[in-house]
Design a protein around this nucleic acid. Sequence first.
DNA 1: CGTGTAATTGAGGATGATCAACCAAGGTGG
DNA 2: CCACCTTGGTTGATCATCCTCAATTACACG
Lengths: 223, 223
Amino acid sequence: MAQRVSFTEFLSCGECPVGSVSGCAKGSRCPLVDRRRPAGTLLYVVGEPVETVWFIKYGAVMLSRAADDRRGEGTPWAVRRRGSFLGLEGLVRPTYLDSARALTDVTLCGAPRTDVLQWLGSTDGGARVLLEGMLLAQSADTPRRTNADGSALERVAAWLCESSADNSVLTLPRRVVAGLLGMQPETLSRCLAALSDQGALRVTRRSIEVTSRDKLESIATGA
Amino acid sequence: MAQRVSFTEFLSCGECPVGSVSGCAKGSRCPLVDRRRPAGTLLYVVGEPVETVWFIKYGAVMLSRAADDRRGEGTPWAVRRRGSFLGLEGLVRPTYLDSARALTDVTLCGAPRTDVLQWLGSTDGGARVLLEGMLLAQSADTPRRTNADGSALERVAAWLCESSADNSVLTLPRRVVAGLLGMQPETLSRCLAALSDQGALRVTRRSIEVTSRDKLESIATGA
DNA sequence: CGTGTAATTGAGGATGATCAACCAAGGTGG
DNA sequence: CCACCTTGGTTGATCATCCTCAATTACACG
């Protein structure tokens, strides 16, 4: 059996964990094929259908999730380096969750998502079930907001837009919501009061009810 | 073959994806066993050795990562709901990355990490390789900082402490670092200048060199 | 040696943090 | 059943912090 290799040290296909599972050393075909891209390349865009799943062989990639259109690409929220996969959300949902841009010259391995799904093996295996669970959970929640993503009021409005469907969210303790939105509980409270004044919400100490999604959306986008 | 069930709707073991993989319906033993906890229970603490991996059957759990000791438990950065796993980082590292607290009354299934590792199946399967890759990547990066985690200066100092080992990090574009730290590039620039003035760094436009980790740490903890 | 982009610096003012007091809602025990 | 206490949430006033906008500088690249 091939020696397992750390995810951060390999370079060649034979050393890549994907390659060794596929038996590259023994001459089998790895599902992933190499591609190089210069620094600055936009690899994919949020909302695009996922056709390819990527593996970073060399270099660094920046992920951003456009909080709102007007700010162009949105602020970066994570960096992925060699050894990481990109676009895995495609295994459990149709479109990319983020936009990805190469920070350095990169070497990527890419494979069609259908090939990867096949390569994963039995849908009944423990690892596969866990993997899908993780991917679903990860797809469900957005990264923490910061005040680089807009004013406190904008963030609150945006968050309410996204999560008003699930009303279990609307009963979370204020201190927790404030944490997710990157502000103090007092600030959250004031924002909710402001939105209530503008007739977008009905707020009590323990519940939030959205009365005008339109108003929320226009505030969220910085109107 | 058992019908696969959405990760967000089941309740009984037979409907749980873990349960069905294990063949609970056919009388086999699921590796996870039920436990109930009242709202507010502290489930585990960051840094503790991972003995148990959890699956949330019902309820919601808050994750926080103490940025610094003095602020007590730190601000929450994510919420996990039924259908999510907790403590999966234990499959690739010895200790918990977060502290977890029950937000509601919860029903959890727990299993020793060694059992789960076994349950995952072959270490050569595609799904298993992908799973470990995801877990490693996820363990490597910290959630985005917000100004609920301390002042801009504190966040910069803390980030430099953590990532000074890996100097590929120190050459990331400023605009990206600013995004990760939840501030504007201008603010980051000023913070770096301030830290440089205090003799903790040597900064050029394209590189950062830590000259006094002690100083950084004392600033990071709000000295 | 120009040009364009990213980083830095400056000044200003809005925004959000802080600290404090107050209020609502349970839970507990007398 | 009611006074009491605790906890979490809201409101107010103040001020430091950080954002904004602008001009300037460094650096890479053609």
